[in-house]
Amino acid sequence: MAVVHIPALILDLTDGEDSIEVEIAPDARMTVRELLAEVERRHPGVESRLLDNGELVPGIAVFIDGEQSRAGLHANAGPESEIHFIPAVVGG
């Protein structure tokens, strides 16, 4: 099961469910965009808060298993993956 964590500000769209499990076959991969489409199918409205014209809203990054993914929505997730949508941080 891949787990998509739902940002706290849109928990009202998932009836308070803060993580959504999506079945991925053992050797299969799904892109983050596909996972998000699956979440959207179950909980309409989530996509429109995370995407702007089909791209991630500015300032938000995809994290897979604790690592910021450079590929963003195109990144591949596996059956054990954890996906977060959180701000990208640089530093001083």
């Binding site: 964590h5 994290f63 298993d65 604790g66 690592e67 954890e82 977060h84 959180i86 701000p87």
Partner: peptide, 8 residues
């Protein structure tokens, strides 16, 4: 972390 991901 408070924002979700696990620490390495």
């Amino acid at each position: 972390r408070a924002d979700g991901p696990k620490f390495h």
